[in-house]
Amino acid sequence: MNQNLSTVSQRSPSAIATNKVLRNTYMLLSLTLLFSGFTAAISMMMNMPPMTYLISIIGGMVIAMFVLPRFANSPAGIGIVFLITGLLGFGLGPILTMYASLPNGGNIIMLSFAGTGAIFMGLSAYVLTTRKDFSFLGGFLMVGFLLVLLAALANIFLQIPAMSLMISAVVIMIMSGFILHDTSRIIHGGETNYVLATIGLYMTIFNIFISLLQILGIMGNDD
């Protein structure tokens, strides 16, 4: 009995801490997605040129890789997350403007948006209800992601539309895997920093949205 009580008292603070990380992550993720939508709208209104996308992606990724980890444990980390997500949202503006100008553009954007939301919520709900540990996916997903980056690099020179479509499809699968992996890490106490957890999940959502836009844009305009 005493042993049971001590087990309960030892586990409870950890479970509370995990729930707190999860709650804070989803709260910050919601705010950053709204902020990205806001900066994307500003970028569309300003009619920014296509190169804005490339510059924003590179800027956002450099800050996420080299600056954010140094400030992840301080309040400044939250500001840096908003800087990154705002920048990535701003970069989306010209892409959304381009898709909106297509004959079926509004529909493509709405479907990509709804599809991304459904994929994220479905996979998150799957992990949260089954509470499966997906930590075994880490190496597999990183290797897959590196291979996709290599394929994308090759396609910059090869310019094969079918390969571009294939890369987008694989990115959706890999990012879906990362949603399972990252959410599982949060609920099993592997990730205790909600700033880093938020940026990880944000990147998966951003990549799924861009890839869905590309797939639906190509498939929706081939007649």
Binding site: N107, S112, G115, I119, G122, K132, F134, M173, L212, L216
Partner: peptide
């Protein structure tokens, strides 16, 4: 298997989205 099943569901869902567009 617990990884393959949701990923297969995502693939089917994307195919559904392609049909809808």
């Amino acid at each position: 298997m617990s990884f393959v099943i949701p990923i297969a569901a995502v693939v089917l869902f994307v195919m559904l989205l392609i049909k809808l567009v």
